[in-house]
Design a protein around this nucleic acid. Sequence first.
DNA 1: GCCTTTTCGTTGTAAAAACAACAGATTTAT
DNA 2: ATAAATCTGTTGTTTTTACAACGAAAAGGC
Lengths: 219, 219
Amino acid sequence: MKKYIPILKETQLFSGISENEIEPMLSCLQAEVRSYKKGEYVLSQGDSLSYITVLLEGCLHVQKDDYWGNRSIVNVVGEGDMFGEAYAIADDARLLNDVLAVEDCRVIFFDVKRVITVCSSACRFHSMVVQNLFFAISEKNRRLVQKIGHMSKRTTREKLISYLSEEASKQQSSTFLIPFNRQQLADFLCVDRSAMSNELCKMRNEGLIKFERKQFTLL
Amino acid sequence: MKKYIPILKETQLFSGISENEIEPMLSCLQAEVRSYKKGEYVLSQGDSLSYITVLLEGCLHVQKDDYWGNRSIVNVVGEGDMFGEAYAIADDARLLNDVLAVEDCRVIFFDVKRVITVCSSACRFHSMVVQNLFFAISEKNRRLVQKIGHMSKRTTREKLISYLSEEASKQQSSTFLIPFNRQQLADFLCVDRSAMSNELCKMRNEGLIKFERKQFTLL
DNA sequence: GCCTTTTCGTTGTAAAAACAACAGATTTAT
DNA sequence: ATAAATCTGTTGTTTTTACAACGAAAAGGC
């Protein structure tokens, strides 16, 4: 359990809490680590979840099969990411998606009741975790709305402009780095990579933007 | 103010709190009720919000109009639903969307600082409101993720299938009512109305669905 | 260093969507 | 009850996207 503390320290959930403070919290929060083989389901649609979870190792896909059996991947969970928290915290929320291990995985579970109910004074950093969770979910909410703002644009060019403008304003510079490669950016904006790449180059030729790998400049 | 207590009692924010316990909380939370006519804006993009709000009566759309006049409906707020909370909780978050009354509405405002800061006095149900707020924000996140799931689909048909499947499963019936007219549904899924209407009729001709105004049936 | 894998840009084609314009049905207002 | 406004379906045209296939450049492993 101890070996995962450096990973946990970097997560938003434990932001502002040092490594030696995390250790006693693990038992307070009834932490439990489980392993999954590639192809196994970590969570399934319809499940009732009572754990806050953080992915320690591997990669997960949050996906859904619709009425006619078509599958859609909703989200990719990377190492250190929290997932399923909205289902664990909400009162009686059944999972609407499946969570599949696409690699061998290691997941840490925290009892949600222990997390959101502040325990007696012994665990003084607990209230900070509660607050972290509160702000994290609010921020996640706003990020989702922003993502919807980009996706709602009709053309690939408009989606790109929407996203790049926001990134520029967030980083307070017309030159900035994006956290995606081309494929990931396309997946984020829900467009085809090659079509997007094509559009980016057109925009560059028209003198709207400059870019080099992950560095972009709005002109 | 008193007459709204029976409505508030049924809301997520005051879940588990009885009517006679709500009354003293209203002053503690500095509640204020305002009315809006159909077509009026309750909140506007760029606003800084310091109130948790609950819709007592009517229906609201959380939406955004872009430079070219394209409208994107992010969320539908029904009676008893809370809105804008993610912006109120964060310290310096400006609203990304407008909130429009699509019917005559009545909204109650609570000072967010009073809500999330548990008071010292004998307001013992206050901490339960805080917990309810957690639940509500989590649920909101889930709804946003669902919407992204629909929008992430490449074709209008897939978007429709995704949305209608979910609505069917949410209402636990293959026949159900949607809360949108055609234009609003198009705005919600971020596609052109006529193209969507066309696609719906094709799907009906292919025997996939039946519909009549706002009532749909999956076959 | 070299080889392998990944990333990125480019092109052409087929499919799909946006857009515009219009007519009939339905709802709302007076 | 009638007129006005809104909603819905339909069609044709233009624009945009998805898809597939490929080579060059860059990154990573040994």
